[in-house]
Amino acid sequence: MKKKFGICFGYLVFFNIFTGLSTWLFSALLTDKRLAIIIAAAVFVLGIFLGFTLQRKRPLPVNSAIIALSGIGTGLAVSAYFIHVNFKDFIDLATLGQNILLADIAVLTFYCLYGLSLNIPILERHIKLYTYSVLIVFLLLTIALWANQDKFLFSLVFYFYINTALFVFPLIMRVVTIKDLIFRLTVASFGALLLITLVTLIIISEGDGFDLDLSGRGVIDVESPKKSKINEPNEH
């Protein structure tokens, strides 16, 4: 499990660094929320282009670059929310940076605790049900905190939680090679960018809500991370 978890956790940290830095930077520099969304969409298109044109030639560096780009795009989408709520009238950039750091630490702690919990045999045996249940409960918790507590902190907790939740799936999905795992992590980063952009679009357009299919139905083949073939010494 250590090898697979280490790869997933490392890329989540990598992705969140770009998300956090771009959130802070573009919240400071941009004043037009629509421009932030447009640039985020352009970053998404660029990532798709790189994936289709270069991914097969040099998969590791290209996928890493795409994950970084997706993090930047995600940060742009988050910054659109902060521009929308006129955050500069309420908090300064130092406080925003502090909130980003706190939110990131919170979700990374969640990811580590979730990974450790998979060492419990009964949870490992029911990994899909357990994972979906945990993700839904914490999703509802982050939404409740955002709605009822400090929106400048807990909106970030929600956004970073989305990143983290999507990076849970590569951890438990059955893969054989590191190349396959990193590809799934790349898809997760795309998913985070797309989902967070859509959520932000709904918020800034004052929509009434959105639907997430969290029923757990599907044919995703999962595995316990500690039993993954990736952990075998001769895997490369």
Rank of each mutant, 00 (worst) to 15 (best):
M1S: 08
K3L: 06
K3N: 07
F5K: 02
Y11P: 05
F15R: 11
T19S: 15
L21P: 01
W24H: 01
F26H: 04
F26T: 06
L30R: 09
L30N: 12
R34K: 15
I38S: 06
A40T: 12
A41W: 04
F44H: 06
G51M: 07
F52D: 08
K57I: 07
V62C: 00
V78S: 11
I83K: 03
I83V: 04
N86M: 14
F87E: 08
A94W: 11
A94L: 05
Q98G: 09
I100R: 13
L102W: 01
A103K: 03
T109P: 00
F110P: 01
L113Q: 13
Y114T: 05
L116V: 05
E124R: 07
L129S: 07
Y130S: 11
T131M: 05
S133T: 14
L135H: 04
I136Y: 07
L141Q: 06
W146F: 06
D150W: 12
D150E: 04
F152D: 01
Y159R: 02
Y161V: 05
L166N: 02
V168E: 04
M173V: 05
V176Q: 12
K179H: 08
T186M: 14
A188C: 14
A188F: 12
F190A: 02
F190D: 03
G191D: 06
G191I: 13
L193D: 01
L194A: 15
L195I: 15
T197M: 11
L198E: 12
I203G: 00
I204T: 10
S205E: 13
E206P: 01
L214R: 00
G216T: 08
V222K: 09
P225Y: 03
K227M: 04
K229R: 12
I230L: 07
N234D: 14
